[in-house]
Amino acid sequence: MLKIENLYASVGDKKVLNGLSLEVKAGEVHAIMGPNGSGKSTLASVLAGRPGYTVDKGTVTYEGKDLLGLEPQDRAHEGIFLGFQYPVEIPGVNNVYLLKAAVNAARKHKGLPEVDAFDFLGLVREKMKLMKMDESFLSRGVNEGFSGGEKKRNEILQMLVLEPKLAILDETDSGLDIDALKIVAAGVNSLRSAERAVVLVTHYQRLLDYIVPDFVHVLARGKIVRSGDRTLALELEKRGYDWVLEDAA
């Protein structure tokens, strides 16, 4: 589904990714871990097409297409979803309106008619229940006045409604208490299927207790220095990152 080969990327003058390679197949959940400043969020941003990030070298192929040649909105239409580390507040744009506009944009791309407003609201309500979100959310502005946890839950709600093929979740667990973490994890797990893939960018092993990954990768100095299964995350929790970095050096 996603193939990253020898990717070099920079933010301004700063080189952040230094020859990163990663392959994600449909049905898989990959966790990307690593110390602060290792390039985790940069990877997520480059995949979603955030402005300000320059790809210096390498290729990213998504479902056989050159992903880097697509605009952010086109990546979304193709089924990529970025869960933001810091979801943006947009007062004045209603949550439901955004969801509907997003769903309809994707449908238009596929040549499908717009969703029925009534059915759509029903779907949103159902997903909101799963995310344990209050009804009042429907009438509020996008993330407006939300707590940190509410914002993260809202990201997952958007993901559930948009049903992406590839979800890239950038530190979706940061700032969540244990109850909220469980809700978010349940949301992500409900989307797991043989056709979809998830890339979890996270600092902590804790999230992986609830969303069990197929692969765990350690990112350091802009490249993947070690890959393994779930047990690698447990080992990292016990021993920290230093031993991996030393091994890699």
Partner: peptide
């Protein structure tokens, strides 16, 4: 960018 990333046209 947030809106674009959700598929909204520019």
């Amino acid at each position: 960018f947030y809106l674009l990333s959700r598929g909204i046209e520019k």
